[in-house]
């Protein structure tokens, strides 16, 4: 039984939609389909772009070359085939240093209160999980990650902040993520990474959807040290690779 369906977004785009859930397995499937469609040697002409998200894949196509029903048939066959399994995932975990300082994390206390725990307990909990990157969106390199434990899954602020510093780490319900650029935003801020997450001179992101990120709590002194190294181009993110789950 297929657990997905198709909905047109316009005459040049189609949504492939899985159940309205945040689910790693389904999201991995979506990522694999997206990358399969973007292959330069694709056997399907007319694909313009793809946008994988939590439970959806938006496919933009050229209606002169490809019709929506042809695309649907193709995706049906692709999902049923074994083509996507060849790229079985290796769990790729990036270790990202984060300073959970009160100055960087103005919402530490309110989130700790929400979870009926102390701030150190909150920091331990938030940095004890490998977070799966479900999608990049909003800003270049903004990673939507999960899953944050229910106890501390505090909803976003009612009134977004006008300015959030680049590198800020926050949570919004069961999602957690980093602001790669200074921007307005409503996520609850817990800390900040000294690593430059987006550089217009090297715009390719450090991580992609399907990767995992593990936060590593660091001191203020280490924050400053890593920031200096990073700015000099001498800091390399530590990584861990595990066989696919």
């Amino acid at each position: 039984m297929a657990d997905y369906f198709f909905v047109p977004v316009g005459e040049q785009s189609l949504n492939l939609i899985f159940p309205n859930l945040i689910d790693v397995k389904k999201n991995q499937l979506i990522q694999h389909i997206a990358r399969y469609l973007l292959r330069p040697d694709t056997d399907l002409p007319g694909i313009v772009d793809v946008i994988p998200a939590y439970h959806t894949l938006t496919v933009n196509f050229d209606p002169a070359l490809l019709q929506a029903d042809e695309l649907q048939d193709y995706l049906d066959r692709l999902i049923q085939s074994k083509k996507l399994e060849a790229s079985a995932p290796v769990k790729h975990v990036l270790l990202l240093p984060v300073c959970y300082d009160e100055e960087f994390g103005p919402d530490l206390t309110s989130v700790a209160d929400y979870g009926h725990m102390t701030v150190p307990e909150l920091i331990d909990l938030h940095s004890s999980l490998d977070y799966f990157v479900y999608m990049l969106g909003f800003l270049p390199g903004f990673a939507y990650m999960g899953t944050v434990p229910d106890r501390i899954a505090m909803p976003r602020l009612d009134q977004p902040r006008a300015v959030i510093a680049a590198g800020s780490v926050g949570i919004a319900g069961q999602q957690t993520g980093m602001y790669p650029l200074q921007s307005p935003g409503g996520w609850r801020l817990l800390g900040r990474t000294p690593v430059r997450l987006y550089d217009p001179k090297r715009p390719a992101p450090l991580y992609e959807a399907g990767d995992y990120i593990r936060f590593q709590a660091i001191s203020r002194a280490d924050y400053n040290k890593i920031q200096q190294l990073d700015q000099a181009g001498k800091f390399q993110l530590a990584q861990r690779k595990e066989a696919g789950s």
């Binding site: 977004v9 316009g10 040049q12 785009s13 949504n15 309205n20 945040i22 793809v50 946008i51 994988p52 998200a53 939590y54 439970h55 959806t56 894949l57 938006t58 933009n60 999608m135 969106g137 909003f138 939507y144």
Partner: peptide, 10 residues
Amino acid sequence: LLSEGTVFGN
């Protein structure tokens, strides 16, 4: 709603 892809003219 979970965030999903946007297209020109939405």
